[in-house]
């Protein structure tokens, strides 16, 4: 490879299962955008200009191969009326669920994205980022899958109970959530997102047995993904997926986020050229990594997954914790440049 590719060329080449100049790196950084500017997380997530400034500063500092305007998962539940609790040193949490009883689902309506500030922040930030970076750097749009959103809408325990006891209301909830999330994904694409990261932890066999996923989450994912007007990467947010790899291939996604609980080599063998792999550095261990640790982790991941393309070095969860020091982020991209050349 003679010339250095742009991050967009590098990423698209890898996602096509060809070998780019080097392995692309997706540092999924959200809260670090606030940290680098010295502003509170809540303020950062409410200001599209701050997000753009933060993303560009992070990209410049670490040589990241993507940008994202994602704020926080609870923003999508906020749209349905849920409260969000902000912290100074971590991701906002969804507060008390809005669906108190199963019958509340009967009157649930698809919210208007334009009327929800938290959604519009991401859409506006995506537009502004696109204006800044054009076709040079991919912008990752993010949606919570309709099937995983109910954890925040009604609480995890109640959602499991609904799934196993009230299939009619589960279908009704999925219909509302699907319409909302597909619309939100497509609005991000119109704004300039290159690819959509579809976060679906509940579909992981870590959470649901395969047969229940096939009966429920699989159909939701397949229908949703076919309506999203850009390539989709599914992410199980640290959950395993090998026991459902055949169904993930059927979903129509181009790639998958890999948990560090699964061996990247085994995942590469199982996915072949059907799915590109994104992962699987352990984000929760990153706060204590030394430069040597980083080199060892990056080398190991690249040796297992990079051959033939179809691989993006990234974390295993889809978001790097606030506590990860800047040095570690710099060592990750530097190691990838050193060991990820094709």
């Amino acid at each position: 490879m003679n010339h250095e590719m742009t991050p967009m060329e590098r990423t698209l080449t890898a996602l096509r299962h060809d070998e780019p100049d080097r392995v692309p790196t997706f540092l999924n950084l959200t809260m670090h955008g606030a940290k680098i500017q010295g502003i509170p997380i809540k303020k950062y997530f409410s200001d599209p200009d701050a997000i753009v400034k933060g993303q560009l500063a992070l990209g410049k500092k670490f040589g990241n191969d993507c940008y994202n305007a994602f704020t926080y998962s609870a923003a999508e539940a906020e749209t349905f009326g849920a409260e969000t609790i902000f912290y100074e040193d971590g991701p906002p949490n969804a507060g008390r669920p809005v669906i108190g009883s199963f019958s509340d689902i009967d009157s649930l309506e698809v919210p208007e994205i334009d009327n929800t500030r938290s959604m519009m922040v991401t859409i506006e930030a995506t537009k502004k980022l696109k204006k800044e970076v054009g076709e040079d750097v991919p912008i990752i749009g993010v949606v919570i899958s309709p099937f995983s959103l109910p954890i925040m809408q009604m609480g995890f325990e109640n959602y499991l109970e609904l799934m196993y006891s009230d299939p009619a209301r589960l279908r009704a909830l999925m219909k509302v959530n699907r319409e909302f999330e597909v619309d939100y994904a497509n609005r991000q694409i119109e704004a300039g997102a290159t690819v959509i990261m579809y976060l679906d932890p509940v579909s992981s066999p870590t959470i649901l047995p395969r047969e229940k996923f096939v009966e429920t989450g699989f159909g939701v994912a397949q229908k949703s993904i076919s309506s999203i007007k850009a390539p989709v990467i599914i992410h199980f947010a640290s959950g395993r997926f090998l026991p459902i790899v055949d169904k993930v291939i059927e979903m129509g996604v181009i790639g998958v986020g890999v948990s560090n609980e699964e061996d990247l080599g085994a995942v590469k063998t199982a996915c072949g050229d059907k799915l590109a792999l994104v992962g699987n550095l352990n984000g929760l261990q990153m706060p204590t990594w030394t430069e040597k640790d980083v080199e060892a982790q990056v080398k190991d991941a690249i040796s297992k997954a990079a051959a033939g393309g179809g691989y993006v070095l990234s974390d295993n969860h889809g978001e790097i914790p606030y506590q990860v020091p800047e040095d570690v982020l710099g060592w990750i991209t530097a190691s990838c440049r050193k060991y990820g050349k094709y």
Binding site: E157, L160, M163, Y164, P205, T206, I207, L208, P209, K212, R240, L242, P243, E261
Partner: peptide, 14 residues
């Protein structure tokens, strides 16, 4: 089984 990937959290919960 859940820890090893042979069972799901839903199994453990119920």
């Amino acid at each position: 089984g859940w820890e090893n990937g042979d069972a799901a959290l839903a199994n453990l919960y119920f």
